[in-house]
Design a binder for these strands. Sequence first.
RNA 1: GCGAGCGUGGCGAAACUGGUAGACGCAAGGGACUUAAAAUCCCUCGACCUCGGUCAUGCGGGUUCGACCCCCGCCGCUCGCACCA
Length: 864
Amino acid sequence: MPASPTRYDPKTIEPRQQARWADANAFVTRDTGRQKYYVLEMFPYPSGNIHMGHARNYVMGDVVARHKRAMGFDVLHPMGWDAFGMPAENAAMERGIHPKGWTYDNIATMREQLKLLGLSLDWSREFATCDPEYYGKQQAWFLELYRRGLVYRKDGVVNWDPVDNTVLANEQVIDGRGWRSGALVEKRKLNQWFLRITDYADDLIEGLSTLDRWPDKVRLMQENWIGRSKGATLWWDVAEVPAFLANAPEGQPSHDRDPIEVYTTRPDTLFGASFIALAPDHKLTRTIAEHRPDVADFVKACAQTGTSEADIEKAEKLGVDLGVRVRHPFDPEKTLPVWSANFVLSTYGSGAIFGCPGHDQRDLDFARKYALPVLPVVRPDGTETVEIATEAYVGPGRIFNSDFLDGLSVEEAKAEAIRRLEASGHGKGATIYRLRDWGVSRQRYWGCPIPVIHCEACGVVEVPADQLPVVLPDDVTFDVPGNPLDRHPTWKHVQCPSCGADARRETDTLDTFVDSSWYFARFTDPTAAEPINAEAANRWLAVDQYIGGVEHAVLHLLYARFITRALSDAGMLSVKEPFAGLFTQGMVVHETYRRTDGAWVEPTDVDLSNDAGVRSARQRSTGETLIIGDIEKMSKSRKNVVAPAEILESHGVDAGRLFVLSDSPPERDVQWTPGGVEGASRFVQRVWALFDGFDPDASASDQDAALIRETHKAIKAVSEGVEGFRFNSAIAKLYAFVATVRDHDGAGGAARREALSALARLIAPFTPHLAEECWTRLGETGMVLDAAWPTYDPALAADDDVVLPIQINGKRRGEITMPRGADPKAVEAEALANPAVQAYLEANGQSIRKVIVVPDRIVNLVAG
RNA sequence: GCGAGCGUGGCGAAACUGGUAGACGCAAGGGACUUAAAAUCCCUCGACCUCGGUCAUGCGGGUUCGACCCCCGCCGCUCGCACCA
C-alpha cells in the first residue's frame, strides 16, 4: 500500500509550479509554423488592483489558451495595459501625485497580482498605451489616416463643464451636471478632431454578417448603433415667408428662396402631409427667433428640457407656427405650414420633418394638439378606408387619397414616390445613419498627444516623422482646472516644420478608445519600428478568441473594427475584422450586507448562519444583526468586494480559478459564495488524493474496461465543454469523473494509469498548478502544460448495453436493457414482453396501436 | 415605446439536433470515525399522498407517439437603444 494520503498545500505547491514555468520561459510565444491561435482578453485599465471580474475574464482566456496549446497550436496570449485616461489625472488633482507615477505604480502592483493567478501569458510582449514607444507609433498611423482624409477638424458640440473648464464625455454628465464639479453642463461648440468612421458605416454593417463567432446580441447592438435607414430627401419650395425674411439680397442664402430640406423614410405617405416641423435649433427657426420673441422663448424653453429618459417620456409635444408656408412637391397648388417642434432633433437627418399625422404617432399627437389636418393615406389590405382617432396607423396596406400612388402597396409607393421626386427634382432616394463621426479630441493631459502643429501661415502641419513621438512633458501642474498641456510654459511653443515661423503645438490629446483600437495588432510584434509589422500581423491576426465584458459592445468593439479597416485600407494590415471570435462574459456578483442604519458591511466582517434553510447575518466585529441585501456586481460603494488575493491566501489559486468558472455559464453572472470556493477546494484535495494514492509500480494486470470507458466518456464531455465555452459543464463532468475513478478501487493498473493521465491533462487548463503536481506524481518528467490533450476513442467511450426507458403514451412505465445498436424489431419484441408493460395494459384494458423505437434512446408505445 | 435575452428544487445550475427533467456544486437533515472538534467518508434531499402512484421546467392554449426545447397568446425580470422622421 502507498503511504497514507498527504494534504495538498497550495501555498507551497502553487509558487513552486509558477517558478518552474518561469524558469522554463514556458509562456513565451512559440512560433513553430503550426496552426496559430490568438487568444486575447480585453486589457485592463490599471486602476490599482486586480479584482474578481478581471480574474474571471483572464482565467477564461487562460483555459482557452492552455487547451489550444495542448491541442498543438502555436498560441499567442499577450497582456498589456490600457493606461491613459482620467482616473490618473483625478488622482493627480486629489492627491498631488503625477499621473505617470500613479499609473506605472498601479501597473507594477497589478502585474504581480496577475502573475499570482498562474496565467499562461507571454509577458515579454507587455506594453502600456502610455509608453511613448506605443503612443508614438499611434501618432504615426494617425498622421497616415490624416493624409488619407480620414482625420479632420470641425466645430463640434461638446459637453462643457464651466467650473472645471474642460470637455466631459457623455458618461461624465450625470443628470445634466458635471460629475466632479456639480456644475450645469453647457453645450459648447468647439473645434475638434474627428475620425471619419461614417465613411465605413456600410462596411461596418456588412462586415457583421461575417462575424459568425460573435454573439448575435452584440452584432445587433452594433447594427442598431450605426442605424442605417433608407428613405428620401425632399426639398420643399417656399411659398410664403414673413415680411422680415423677404427680399434677401441676391447671391446670399435666403430663406425666402432656398427650399427646406426634409428626410423621410415614408415618401409613400407624402400626400398625407399636413405640416413641416423644424428642430428648435434649425437655422430657419433661429433666424425667425431673432424677429419674433415668442419663437425665441420657445427655442429657449426647448434648450432647457432635459434629455433623460424620464424627461422625454413626460415632455409634451410643443411647437410654434413660424409663419412660413411651403409648396407640396407633388402639388404646387397645395401649401403647408412650417412649424418648429420640440420633438424634432437637429442632429438627425436635416433637422426637419414633414408631419403625416395619419401614419406617425408623434405627428398625430402634435396635429391633435394644434388642430392640424389629419388625412389618412394608407388603409389596411381588405378595407376601404381607415379611421384615425388617437392612434396612427403604421402597418402595411394600400395607398389611397394619393393621386398617382393610389392602389400601390406601401413598398411600391415608396419606390414610385422617389422616382417621381427625382424626375421633378424635388427629392431623391437617400440613406442616412445614426452613427456620427468620432470626436477624438480631449482637452486633457494624460492621453496621446495629437501630432500636429498649427501655423499662422501654413495652417495645420504634421509633425515630421523624425520628430515622433510627440512626448508628453513631465513637468505639469494640476492645481488649477483646465488642460495642463495648454498652460505649460514652453511645450506648445514650437517652430513650424514647414516655414520655420513661430507656431503652436496641438494641445488636445486623443480619446483613450483610440489607444485600444489597435493594441491587438501591436501585440503581434510590440517592438517593430513600424506601427504594425505586416508579416507578424499577417501571421497572428485576426484574434481567434477575444473575451471581455459586453459593456464594450458598441464602443471599443466598433472603434476597433473601424480602425482595423482604416489601417487595412492604408496597407498596414491585411485583415478587415480584428476579432474573428468574441465571447462576452458575465460579471462576478456578491450578496450585499447592511446594518439597520443603512451602512454597508464587508463580507469579511459578516458571519452567516443557516438554520434549517433560514439564513441570517451578523456583523462579526459588533455582533449586530445585518440585513442581507441584493446580489450585485462587486463594487467598493456596496462593500461587497472579495479580492482575489484573499482567496489565494485561503484556498489557493486553483480553487479560485475553478470556482469562478464552475458555478454559472461563462456568459452569465456568477455569484461569489464562500461555500462555493470551499467546494472547489475540496475537489482539489480529492484529485490530489487520487494521485497521491497511486502507485506507479503496482502492476495490476486486470484491464478495468468500465474505467477505461468512463475515461473516454469524460475526455469527450470535457473536450466538448471546453470547446463550446461551457466551462461549468466541463467542470461538472470532471467532478463526476473524479468520483468515478475513486469508486474504481485500486492503487495501480494500466486502466487506472490511463484514467489519471487523462485526468491530469483534462484539469490542466482549469487548475494548472494541481495538474503539474499530479503529472509529476505519475512519473512524467515534462510539464503537463506541454502534454498533448487526451483523445477519446468513440468505440471505447460507448457502453455495450443501453438502458431504454419504455413509455406508454408518453409516460415512463418501465425500462429494458438492450445491447447497443440492437435491432429495432428485437427492441420492440422485448418492450412488448416487458412485465410492467403487460401489467399496465391489463390494468387499463388497453392494447398497443403503434410502436416507436428510437434506436439506443427510448421506446414509446401508443396504446388505446 | 422599439429591439434582444431570460423564467427549471431552499440556492447556483444541467439536460448538445424534440427522447428517463433536476447531472455537478452549495445549503440543509441523518449517520460513521473521534474523549471532543476540525477534516474526511456514507445516506437522504422537487411537491403530494394510501409507497404504488399522482402532479411538477412562469401562466394559458396548440403541434407531436413524445415538449424545459417548436408554434400562438399572456405575465414577470434583465440588458441595449430611445421623440431617429
